[in-house]
Design a protein around this nucleic acid. Structure first.
Length: 417
RNA sequence: GGGGGAGUGUCCCGAGUGGCAAAGGGGGCGGACUGUAAAUCCGCUGGCUAAGCCUUCGUAGGUUCGAGUCCUACCUCCCCCA
């Protein structure tokens, strides 16, 4: 598979991005001899992209880096329908207002990876609401619907699984793949887009678009999917206690983002370095040679590089520095997440339970009590044994803060104001 | 339209004879061991002003000292017949 001649496919292939490609030779030729335009569609179901979106987005990055033109397609229209792929449950129907807010919020992420025209690049940001919202039903059925065979649609995994497991699949969702296919054909017409990329679960939807493009525009279109990323121990990636690993800094701080990558399993480090950083492969190979505890060095590189890509080099270095002080020197790092508390509350004595809840380390007083019993809570690195303990100004460190810890990894500073 | 079945700790799957804050998993969190890893072992996994109180088994009523469990109506899903 790595005998691709075009830079684009060569890079994707050697870094481990490729799961399936339709007509690999033809696409390779096209990418070698011309500038291709490719797109990836994004849902607007949440106010931020998360780790799961990072892999496809890296493909757009490499696409542009190897001289081609990426389109980030926001699903302003399709999000109103909901993609049933890989899900048993129907999506909640989101209001147009929320979808729009999400869309605006998500847009910011792309500017980190892609150069748009405003930055002197050629990347395009499109929104399928532009053409989907104004579709006329009868016209659409006659022009597009005629090319879709229900027999065939029923055979697609996204549909088949629902039917087999006897889960509801509404007609609304059933139409999702038609709309996505239409997106591809429309982007081909508007921008000369000839390639759609996505996660492996998108294969069926993409192939539908290829067929429709041929029928509507007589165009030759291609599909390229990325593998579904699971961790070495088989868990789906991107879930933590706090929920999804968000890409927006206001939902997940650069420090926490760094920590996420730092805690990568051994078996994943090399793969992740290739996928989620832009380090040269020679460098990755060098890091791959590390054994045993030395792998931690590779993990730090992974964390810093991945964070730098997302939040900038400065934030990444700061996160690395904070982690180094906290974990390796046992020192108090001032850049740990900080929660401000009125000084008056410390004067009168703040209950530990309340303090940990306020800091966001535990969800309720009850959980705080349980954690104390289990020996999981610490004040300034001293394990709490009595839930009646109170925090006073006496607990302030020379730096004027109090360090609260949950377990070994989660720390929050309390700062009086 | 007729007949049959199902909805359980709001993360998921799932047991449940009228005494149930409700078995068991998975996941998650904490502890031990480590390398901020994995594996393994142990503990925890509704809320509160906590030997008590409050809220939970699709929804709303009812029977009962007491209901996830019985009755009625309704909602949603599945299967068979039309």
């Amino acid at each position: 598979m790595s005998d691709f001649k075009s830079d684009f496919l060569h890079v994707l292939s050697t870094r481990g991005f490729i799961h399936q490609v339709s007509e690999p030779e033809a696409l390779d030729d096209l990418a070698r001899t011309s500038r291709i335009t490719a797109y990836i569609g994004y849902d607007c179901t949440a106010p931020s992209l998360h780790i799961g979106h990072l892999l496809p987005t890296m493909m757009l990055y490499w696409l542009q880096q190897t001289g081609h033109r990426p389109i980030a397609l926001m699903g302003g229209g399709t999000t109103r329908v909901g993609d049933p792929s890989g899900k048993d449950e129907s999506r909640k129907v989101l209001s147009s207002e929320i979808i729009n807010e999400n869309l605006v919020s998500i847009r910011k992420t792309f500017s980190k990876f892609l150069k748009f025209e405003s930055d002197g690049g050629n990347a395009v940001m499109a929104n399928n609401a532009d053409w989907l919202n104004t579709l006329n039903y009868i016209d659409f059925l006659r022009d597009v619907g005629r090319y879709f065979s229900v027999n065939r649609m029923l055979a697609f995994d996204s549909v088949k699984l629902r039917l087999e497991r006897q889960h509801e699949l509404s007609f609304l969702e059933f139409n999702y793949m038609i709309l996505q296919a239409y997106d591809f054909a429309e982007l081909n017409k508007r921008y000369g887009c000839t390639l759609q990329m996505g996660g492996s679960d998108q294969w069926g939807n993409i192939v539908n678009g290829i067929d429709l493009g041929r029928r509507l525009n007589n165009a030759r279109l291609f599909a390229l999917t990325a593998p579904l990323i699971t961790t070495a121990s088989g868990a789906k990636m991107g879930k933590t206690a706090a929920g999804a690993v968000w890409l927006n800094a206001d939902l997940l701080s650069p420090y926490d983002y760094w920590q996420f990558w730092r805690n990568t399993e051994d078996g994943d480090v090399v793969r992740f370095l290739k996928l989620f950083t832009i380090l040269p492969l020679e460098e990755v190979t060098r890091l791959a040679a590390l054994q045993g505890g030395e792998i931690n060095e590779a993990k730090k590189v992974l964390a810093t590089e991945a964070t730098a890509l997302m939040h900038g080099r400065a934030s990444a270095e700061q996160a690395a520095d904070t982690a180094q002080k906290t974990f390796e020197q046992g020192a108090l790092a001032e850049n740990l997440p900080t929660v401000e508390v009125p000084r008056a509350e410390l004067d009168t004595g703040l209950g530990v339970l309340t303090a940990f809840v306020t800091a966001g380390l535990v969800a309720s007083n009850g959980e705080a009590r349980r954690q104390i019993k289990a020996g999981g809570l610490k004040i300034n690195d001293a394990t709490i044994t009595d839930e009646k303990t109170t925090l006073t100004t006496g607990a302030l460190t020379p730096q004027g803060v109090i360090k609260l810890s949950l377990g070994k990894k989660k720390h929050v500073l309390i700062k009086p104001v």
